[in-house]
Amino acid sequence: MEKGKIIPFLIIGIFSFVFGYFVGVSQPLYSENIVIQYFKNPKPYSVEDVSLPITYYGTVCGKYIGYQIPPHNVNEEARNSFYRYFKLKDKDPKKAESYLKRGLFLTEYLISQSQKEQVEVNGRTISFIIWTYNFEFPLYNLSRGWKGSLCQAGCLKTLYLAYLATEDKRYLKYANLALNAFEVPVEKGGLLKLRRYKNNSYYWFPEYASENPPYVLNGFITATLWIGEFGDKTNNSEARYLYKRGLKSIETFLPMYDAGNWSYYDALGHKCNRHYEHLQRLQMLWLYNITKKEMYLKYYEKWKE
């Protein structure tokens, strides 16, 4: 592919990534069975005529999960509401206001569901907030209360968009607390895992956090890129540091996800389905345009859809 053709593909890729990526993103092997539905807000909330997105998981690996409100679907819909608000605020202020109202309602719901934690890491006290899943996830042997970097990064981005839309520094404060979870080891309740390779340690933000995570590739890439985006937009030095460490890990471990003319979804040898193969190719294109490193373009062209 000629490099001059990269930019149009990037635009298409980013559009697809932003608006189509996160519905069912954490369910690679049975996403066709998942149904997104809506649940009317309970009475304690003062906002009227709004809904919470819920997911029907059905039975997964022999375990009935049923209806749940996973935070990654909530933060995705909140982000899309803010995107529509920014697009319409000058063209159709009334309609834009309805999207802003919905985005803020969902953001407040996320804040209410976050858990506040404080731990010591290398002699330093770190306060952070984190989101957990209120159900088991037997696909990766996760118990109720499991956490993930993809969800956390989505909440981080949602909080930043709420701040951008309102200039309310309360949202930025929560965003910084959400970022702090990426500095805390998984073993202490955070989302940082040190992944070993050739006697060196590399930062990894696991999409499915556990003592022995499956090291899902696409979720880690997205989390890393969104952390970097937050660092650039807020001039946050810690976010920029985490982003650089994440990029180094992607570069180091990417060859392990090469399955010839296809790619692996995780480090356990599960190959991507067509949805995730398409997504990971777009991620390679995104990384190439950011870093200009030929290895990403090589994998973009090598992996088929």
Results as ranks from 00 to 15, higher is better:
residue 1 M to S: 14
residue 2 E to G: 13
residue 8 P to D: 04
residue 10 L to F: 11
residue 11 I to N: 06
residue 13 G to S: 10
residue 18 V to K: 14
residue 20 G to N: 02
residue 27 Q to F: 05
residue 30 Y to N: 11
residue 35 V to I: 13
residue 37 Q to R: 11
residue 37 Q to T: 09
residue 38 Y to R: 15
residue 47 V to G: 01
residue 48 E to W: 04
residue 51 S to P: 00
residue 52 L to W: 04
residue 54 I to K: 07
residue 55 T to M: 12
residue 56 Y to T: 12
residue 62 G to E: 01
residue 63 K to P: 10
residue 65 I to W: 06
residue 67 Y to K: 12
residue 67 Y to D: 11
residue 67 Y to R: 09
residue 72 H to A: 04
residue 72 H to L: 12
residue 73 N to I: 14
residue 73 N to P: 11
residue 73 N to T: 13
residue 74 V to D: 02
residue 76 E to C: 05
residue 79 R to N: 06
residue 79 R to D: 01
residue 83 Y to S: 05
residue 85 Y to T: 01
residue 87 K to S: 11
residue 87 K to E: 10
residue 87 K to R: 08
residue 91 K to V: 03
residue 94 K to F: 12
residue 95 K to M: 06
residue 96 A to E: 02
residue 97 E to L: 10
residue 98 S to H: 02
residue 98 S to K: 05
residue 99 Y to G: 00
residue 100 L to D: 00
residue 100 L to Y: 00
residue 103 G to M: 04
residue 105 F to G: 04
residue 126 I to E: 01
residue 128 F to D: 03
residue 131 W to L: 06
residue 135 F to C: 14
residue 136 E to N: 10
residue 143 S to P: 09
residue 145 G to T: 07
residue 151 C to A: 11
residue 152 Q to R: 07
residue 154 G to D: 02
residue 160 Y to W: 12
residue 163 Y to G: 02
residue 164 L to P: 02
residue 166 T to D: 00
residue 166 T to W: 00
residue 168 D to C: 04
residue 169 K to Y: 07
residue 174 Y to D: 12
residue 175 A to V: 13
residue 176 N to A: 08
residue 177 L to M: 08
residue 179 L to Y: 07
residue 182 F to I: 11
residue 184 V to L: 04
residue 185 P to V: 09
residue 189 G to V: 13
residue 192 L to R: 11
residue 195 R to C: 00
residue 195 R to E: 00
residue 195 R to P: 00
residue 197 Y to I: 14
residue 197 Y to Q: 09
residue 198 K to F: 07
residue 205 F to W: 04
residue 205 F to N: 02
residue 206 P to Q: 09
residue 207 E to S: 10
residue 209 A to L: 05
residue 210 S to I: 06
residue 211 E to Q: 02
residue 219 G to V: 06
residue 220 F to D: 03
residue 220 F to V: 01
residue 221 I to N: 00
residue 221 I to G: 00
residue 223 A to S: 12
residue 226 W to Y: 14
residue 226 W to C: 02
residue 228 G to K: 06
residue 229 E to Y: 06
residue 234 T to R: 03
residue 237 S to N: 13
residue 239 A to Y: 04
residue 241 Y to N: 08
residue 242 L to Y: 02
residue 244 K to E: 05
residue 247 L to Y: 03
residue 249 S to V: 06
residue 252 T to D: 01
residue 253 F to R: 13
residue 257 Y to N: 04
residue 258 D to N: 15
residue 269 G to R: 09
residue 274 R to K: 14
residue 274 R to G: 05
residue 281 R to Y: 08
residue 285 L to K: 14
residue 287 L to F: 03
residue 293 K to Y: 07
residue 298 K to A: 14
residue 302 K to A: 06
residue 302 K to Q: 13
